[in-house]
């Protein structure tokens, strides 16, 4: 409203700076819309980010477990980040079975040593979450189906894991995930 356009399209009040046909109103227009756009995006950020895991959910991200009573050949199920975790004390036969497989033949190539800690190769700690669609595989409790490779078996869609919890058969794409963990002592392990 500050400028009046003539019929030939030239503005009466030429911009004091800039030139090249840009009018002051164009600048104000672009600046206002851009600023409103940035503001709109800034408003979106909290609206979207509020759905990410909250501080109290993230605070539960480590757990300590006493493993002194798990005998060789036994496994327990515990909870880490609200998801089940397997802690298995492998027998020498199971360790040997896992090491005898040529790594190149695996769908997700990893050695048992890469999945355990030095000097504690018998402690296999993995998420109890099938990498296919997230079911809890069987094989931790006494008498459960451990699949064709003697590790874990997921009943949902038939994924078989070996004694190092590596995927060997079925639809799952990856080995059972090994969470971050460290031994605080010989009998206590901290997951996360």
């Amino acid at each position: 409203m500050a400028t009046v356009e003539h019929t030939d399209g030239t503005a009466e009040a030429a911009p004091p700076t800039g030139g090249e046909g840009h009018r002051r109103r164009d600048f104000i227009n672009v600046a206002a819309v851009s600023f409103a756009g940035v503001g709109g995006l800034a408003v979106l950020y909290p609206l979207i980010n509020q759905m990410n895991p909250s501080a109290d959910v993230l605070a539960l991200s480590s757990t300590e477990v006493d493993i002194s009573r798990i005998q060789p050949g036994q496994a327990i199920k515990t909870i880490f980040r609200k998801q089940p975790v397997f802690i298995r004390n492998l027998t020498p036969a199971e360790i040997q079975q896992a090491n005898s497989v040529p790594v190149g033949d695996l769908r997700d190539p990893q050695t048992l040593a890469e999945r355990t800690r030095d000097g504690k190769a018998n402690w296999l700690i993995t998420m109890a979450v099938c990498t296919h669609l997230g079911c809890v595989p069987l094989g931790a409790a006494e008498g459960e189906n451990r699949g064709e490779y003697g590790g874990y078996f997921c009943p949902c869609h038939g994924s078989h894991y070996d004694t190092a919890a590596r995927i060997r058969k079925g639809p799952a794409p990856k080995n059972l995930e090994v969470p971050e963990f460290e031994f605080l002592s010989d009998t206590v392990v901290k997951i996360g």
């Binding site: 895991p53 980040r81 609200k82 998801q83 997230g134």
Partner: peptide, 27 residues
Amino acid sequence: AKVITSLFGAIPLVGEPIQAWLLGGFA
């Protein structure tokens, strides 16, 4: 809920953050 949200986890690279965003947690 677990199986269906795991579907989004199948997307390469951004899958797992999307799954955590949908669930507001890890399960």
